[in-house]
C-alpha cells in the first residue's frame, strides 16, 4: 500500500518548529555551560554532579533538561499552529553556531583571555 502526498491534509509546521528551536536552545545551552564550567571554578564545581566525569556530567545533564523542557513548552504552544519558520530557522542555526563556537577550545580560551 502506498500513500500519495497530494491527498494528505497538511499538518501545521508548529511541532516541527518547536523541535528545531528547542534543538537550537539545547545547542546554545551546551556551549554556554561548557564555557562557564571551564571559565569559573565554582561553576565547574557545581556542575560536577557526578565526580568521575567532572563538570561534563553537569553540563550535559543540564543541557538535556533545558533542551527537553524548552521543547515541551514550545510544543504545547505551537503544536496546532502554523509558525513563520524563517525566524525560527535563523534563530536555531544562530544558537547552533554559538554552541559550536563556544565548545571550540581555541575560541573559548580566547574569550577567557588565555
Amino acid at each position: 500500500m502506498s500513500e500519495d502526498l497530494s491527498s494528505d491534509a497538511s499538518l501545521p509546521n508548529g511541532r516541527g518548529a518547536a523541535a528545531i528551536l528547542a534543538a537550537g536552545i539545547g545547542s546554545a545551552t551546551l556551549g554556554v555551560l561548557a564555557l562557564a564550567g571551564d571559565a569559573f571554578a565554582p561553576v565547574g564545581h557545581v556542575l560536577s554532579i557526578w565526580p568521575p566525569s567532572g563538570p561534563l556530567s553537569g553540563v550535559t545533564t543540564l543541557t538535556i533538561i533545558v533542551w527537553l523542557a524548552s521543547w515541551r513548552a514550545l510544543r504545547r504552544r505551537w503544536r496546532d499552529r502554523t509558525i513563520p519558520l524563517g525566524w525560527v530557522t535563523v534563530a536555531s542555526f544562530a544558537m547552533l553556531a554559538l554552541g559550536l563556537l563556544l565548545t571550540f577550545p581555541p575560541f573559548a580560551d580566547r574569550l577567557q583571555g588565555r
Binding site: 500513500e3 499538518l11 509546521n13 511541532r15 516541527g16 528545531i20 519558520l85 530557522t89
Partner: peptide, 15 residues
C-alpha cells in the same frame, strides 16, 4: 511526525 508531508515543508526540511 511529518513523514512524506515533509516534502511540503521546504524550510522545515532544509532545517
Amino acid at each position: 511526525t511529518y513523514g512524506p508531508q515533509l516534502a511540503r515543508h521546504r524550510t522545515l526540511r532544509n532545517a
